[in-house]
Design a protein around this nucleic acid. Sequence first.
DNA 1: ATCACATTCAATGTAATCGTTGAATGATAT
DNA 2: ATATCATTCAACGATTACATTGAATGTGAT
Lengths: 223, 223
Amino acid sequence: MSRTSPKAALFVGFAAVARALGHPQRLEILEMLAQGERSVEALAERLDLPVANVSQHLRLMRQAGLLASHRAGKHIYYAPSDPSVLALTGALQQVAERNLAQVREVLNGYFRKRDAMEPVSRKELTRRIKDDAVVVLDVRPADEFAAGHLPQALNIPLKALGRRLREIPQGREIVAYCRGPYCVLAFEAVSFLRKHGYEARRLDGGYPEWQNAGLPVLQGEAT
Amino acid sequence: MSRTSPKAALFVGFAAVARALGHPQRLEILEMLAQGERSVEALAERLDLPVANVSQHLRLMRQAGLLASHRAGKHIYYAPSDPSVLALTGALQQVAERNLAQVREVLNGYFRKRDAMEPVSRKELTRRIKDDAVVVLDVRPADEFAAGHLPQALNIPLKALGRRLREIPQGREIVAYCRGPYCVLAFEAVSFLRKHGYEARRLDGGYPEWQNAGLPVLQGEAT
DNA sequence: ATCACATTCAATGTAATCGTTGAATGATAT
DNA sequence: ATATCATTCAACGATTACATTGAATGTGAT
């Protein structure tokens, strides 16, 4: 039996966590789960992947300590095991954003609007919610909204925005948000709303970042 | 030609960074480089690995944006490309520490002393250095000390501590540090010093953490 | 108990990663 | 130029990761 140094054992553990993050679809799963816990089936459907495949990815991430799961009836629900997991994905994204040319290109290209649409900070939004000076618009799908959302938020999924414009109260600026910094829904919502004469901006970060900052949320049921 | 969504392209980039961290020896290399830049050869010797192997790992991490390199004479020196890289490894370690049983076991076992030896915070050490109330002891190898160290630090590598005890001034508490939270040198130094009647404690975190906190350091030449 | 269903497991082929070897590159020194 | 040295590259087998398929497990409903 081989005797490995304690330090080496630690690094093997660290590497296992990193490897569990080393697959695009697993990162996508993690982004979904940051919105709130979900069943295997619901994830598979949302991401359009075979159930067995998603199950494998989930098992791997659970073994690496990234996810926790619990059973409720027939379904097994997965969620990030810890706020530190979101800190980790955030740090990962920041390194890539700062040092990977291919990532910076995409951000300066498709997400170029980042600069054009100066986002609203969480602090500012908190203040303006208190003053009742904004309409908070959640453009994620209904099930994600149901799992948890900002207080006073109105949910109109991006796909339905066109035919449900009349539901938006007039006279106040709209602040749209979705899943996070790399979710395009809020970008497109703001762009669409402006084209239709509304005054609209994007929240800096999405629902998970808001929640992780310790700000108030309304939580509901998972899918 | 296949048209991938911009978001998918981002996640591919993020995953590439994570994969580059997903190998124990690469994490060890990264820990070394956090002490200061080093040449391929110096790394290979220190880690006792074939040069070509280290070169491969370095190339991979450079392509993932984790490392930057520059040539000076015959040697090529590598270093973390950004402070965000250290933030990332820190986040990785925290997730593993909190959620991976195998990692917690090692920490509670071999590193159990963590609790027994209440470490000195950076803030406290800063204050006590100003009051000249401590001996700061750097127990890393001489070349790492040369690349950068705490102000007023005395360098006695752990291996030499036994025969160089007389160099340590009397009458003040000793605060020892080394490479970081998972480096055993400072633990063993404190243990050894106490056994020989000295009053000694460990700094919380090592040299990279001190430097990364924006505290003053003395920097020198790389190997 | 039997059935339906969600999830996981086992097995398979394919692709990617890893470490090693020896040759190629790029820079300095003579 | 030539020699020397540090580093990288190319190629090879060995191992591991991946997606898919179909069977097995475990739970709730009939």
